[in-house]
């Protein structure tokens, strides 16, 4: 597994977990530092940001408005262009799930404008 290059730090075992084949983000299993090369499924990605353990890194380019896929399904939408290796979190990903969990008494959710969902 070790693929050390002369002048670069390469993490020598998979420190990203891609949970589903359709995912465009992977979870980190260690703290990844900005500039590090990390490997996922035999491919190398350079970390554009530092990503704490268990958080998400983009593994493909994600356009603004495109769904961010984890577990094979959307977990929200990108709010700007996200490049491979970038940290994905609240600064560039928002929920598509609008309800504020206020209930109107009839077992229906109300969103932030008071509409049922």
């Amino acid at each position: 597994m070790s693929r050390q290059k002369s002048d670069e730090q390469v993490i020598t075992h998979p420190h990203l977990i891609r949970l589903h084949g359709n995912d465009n983000v992977a979870a980190t299993t260690v703290n990844v530092e900005e500039g590090q090369l990390v490997e996922i499924e035999g491919r190398e990605i350079r970390a554009a940001d530092s990503v704490p353990t268990g958080h998400k890194m983009a593994i493909t380019e994600i356009a603004a408005g495109e769904k961010v896929i984890k577990y094979g399904v959307p977990i929200g939408s990108a709010t700007c262009l996200i490049n491979p290796g970038q940290y994905v979190h609240t600064h560039n990903l928002k929920s598509d799930y609008l309800p504020t969990y206020t209930l109107d008494g009839t077992n229906r959710y109300l969103d932030s404008r008071g509409r049922t969902t």
């Binding site: 704490p52 399904v73 929200g76």
Partner: peptide, 22 residues
């Protein structure tokens, strides 16, 4: 289930629920 439980790297409520759902 307020959105924004960012501690463990969870960004959205969908993502949080998916952890159990998967």
């Amino acid at each position: 289930f307020a959105p924004g439980n960012a501690d463990g790297g969870l960004t959205t409520i969908e993502e949080k629920s998916l952890g159990a759902y998967c």
